[in-house]
Amino acid sequence: MTTQLDAAPEGLDSTGSRGTRVLGVLAIVGLAALALFGLVLSPPDASQGEVVRILYVHVPSATFAYIGCFLTTIGSAMFLWRRSAWWELVAYASAEIATVFTAIVLVTGMIWGRPTWGVFWVWDARLTSTAMLLLLLLGYLAVRRLPADHDVRTKRSAIIGLLLVPNVIIVRQSVQWWRTLHQKPTLLANGVGAKIEGLMLFSLFIGFIAIGLVFAWLLIHRFRLAWLEDQLDDAGLDAAIAERRSEGEPS
């Protein structure tokens, strides 16, 4: 089926365009700036020491993971409401990127937690609900990637996507309640919530910009790739139908 790919019109051989190339360069510059400010220029934290530097990646990643989830739910709602394939692809692309970012959040959080708390994992409300979020996203992706009819996949995953944010809210609420009934979430009190200022605040700011650029860049490329995948599916089907038809014709 390589001929299908070769036959793609000019300009469709890559998902890049001038806009995304500029965005990509900006993202690289942002990441370099983040590395410079996060690792070199910003001072170590008074109580957490050098470990605090992980948070310049951790906190922005968490924010954009949440943004990705909201995009998935909005996209799914728009798809179910307006039958818009564009929004469906936005939902799919952002769910996939949100999954990656959630995984980054969990991993960086654990790396941060080990020296700070002495353990990789505590059954804190935030940690537990983030882990559940990852599982919910994996469920969405599992349905979206089913080996089934395109319509079946998109419609079913859209219903799951629509319920994603409500589910996350309920899970979060219940987990928070569950933990606070037993113990106060004191662990994070001297973490993210603590006062940050000066160069550290600026580094975090850079982190938000750099991670945001990476998020946008990934989202656009993933969207285009998903769109091309759909085209290829359709083209493959059309070709197969045409082939079967021509078989029947007397030659």
């Binding site: 559940m132 919910l136 599992a142 799951i160 899970v171 219940s174």
Partner: peptide, 13 residues
């Protein structure tokens, strides 16, 4: 895979 994470609040509750 789909149902159990969703039912986590029910299990806790």
């Amino acid at each position: 895979l789909l149902l159990l994470p969703v039912l986590a609040p029910v299990l806790i509750g």
